[in-house]
Amino acid sequence: MLKENFKDFFETLKKLGEVHAPVRRGRLFSFTKVDSPGEVALNYNRTMLPPKKYFVKPFEEVLKIKVGKGYELIVEEPKSLVLLGLHACDINALRVLDSVYLDEPQDDYYQVRRAAAIVIGVSCEPDEYCFCKSMGTDYAWTGFDLFLHELGTSYLVRVGSSRGESIIESMSNIIGEPTKEDFIKLRDLELKRSRMFKKILNTSLLPDIVDSLHESEVWVVFSDKCVSCGSCNLVCPTCRCYDVTEKVELNLQEGVRVRRWDSCFIRSHALVAGGLNFRPTRLDRFRHRYNCKSSIDPRTNLPFCVGCGRCSAFCPAGIDHVNVLNAIWGLA
């Protein structure tokens, strides 16, 4: 697809649903509703919040309560959504979330929104925080409908689903057949990209690193620097913990149950009835996060960290995910 056809491509997408894409806000980017192709920033580095926010909302009401009488699910009308411009890491992160939220028992709130979302990926270049290549998540094999590989003056459009297939069939006037030269260009660009990664994580032993090197002083050094702000959890595309609370109205008759994103850096995350906390210190929580992110999702065989670099880029204390793990190896 020639870049000059992007406008028409975008207009066609708008007919399929509300289009959301990365938009520049100051120095940062955010997935936001877009009305015109000019607002879309396809050459962004990363958004602060991942696309997860469309499927598990940071804060949402899930039940209506009638005190003493019961409750009623809050069911949302599915709204067609086109998510345009996801990087490979974020697509792989969605696969991890899918495997968690769509496994039995399925999370209906998630399922409805996810089924109504068309995912369109876009190729990217790594910056100083990206390490998806180390994690093997730098390429999206599945988990999207279409993927746009930028080739200078055009995009090579890769199809990832039957829905994607029918979308491009309806666009035959703007998306032509790729040529042999296009594939050669793609190969060259992919090779060039692969050589651009500066952050390399040593991944041997990774799933066992916290257990086997549990006593390393390095954990203490970094957890002393950590201010427990929770940012690394909130920006992570694979963090999936939430907390559930209830709120009752002043009439004392009605209320709602809400769920909101949680963070394992917060005290109440591991607090259980009776006041026992199985991760009482910051050190415990710090190690815990690395343990979680270093393991492998048994359903997709994808790592729980997709190397998007958000936790490093947005940590106020400047704690870099890769530097911590490499330091455990004695590499930094």
Partner: peptide, 20 residues
Amino acid sequence: KDYPVCVECKIREIPCLIVE
């Protein structure tokens, strides 16, 4: 609440004043 202001910054996608 036992979480810090940063959590609310993130949820609103506010650029971090320390980082930026």
